[in-house]
Amino acid sequence: MIEEHRLRTLVQAETPRLADRPEVVTPREHRASRGPAPRQLDADEVGHLLNTLLEAYDGRRPAAQIRALVAPEVYAGLAGPRRPRPRHRTQTVHTCAPAPEVVEACARVEADGRSFALAARFTRTPTGWRCERFALLKPQQPANPNRRAA
């Protein structure tokens, strides 16, 4: 025996659903029905996102936790076995919006008493902001003068 289920209103003031009338949704309304578009990121939010990504970079946060926040290329660079790195923390964050759906950020990052540059690019998606580019720029190690060429 199949039992039919119906939704009932919980409060007398609620209006019942119109089950008899099919709902026509245009593609534009369908996108809007998923929820409000994510608002513009401010520098504090970008700083928080950068620190979260740095935690994955350092190995202090599983990369799987940030998978939804980053593009596949960025995830590939942050995933996989890693040896522990020194803790990187953002010190200053600067942002700009070169387009309505894009936020670019640069930051000064410190680790072990040294400063590094960080560059990132975020794009707005229907579900939120996603990091498309993430680059921690470290100075190249000077060539070892005692090392002999083979």
Rank of each mutant, 00 (worst) to 15 (best):
P139M: 03
R124N: 04
V93Y: 07
V70H: 06
R147K: 10
T127N: 03
A68H: 14
R130W: 05
R121W: 03
T90H: 02
W129A: 11
Q91I: 10
G128K: 12
P86D: 07
Y75Q: 10
C96K: 13
L118M: 05
L137A: 08
E132R: 05
P100H: 02
K138P: 07
P86W: 01
P126D: 07
E110K: 06
A111F: 06
P62T: 01
A120P: 05
L136W: 02
F134M: 11
E104T: 14
R83G: 09
A79L: 09
T92F: 08
V93G: 08
P84H: 01
R124E: 06
P126Q: 04
Q141T: 11
L118Q: 08
D112H: 13
P84M: 10
R85N: 05
R121P: 02
P100K: 01
V109K: 01
G77N: 08
V109T: 04
P100G: 06
L136S: 00
Q141W: 05
P145D: 07
E101P: 04
R121C: 09
P126N: 00
C131P: 02
A120H: 03
A99K: 10
R108Y: 07
L78C: 03
G80I: 03
R82L: 13
R130N: 02
T125F: 10
V70L: 07
E104W: 06
N144C: 11
R108T: 15
N146L: 10
G77T: 00
T92N: 10
G77L: 02
A71Q: 01
P81G: 13
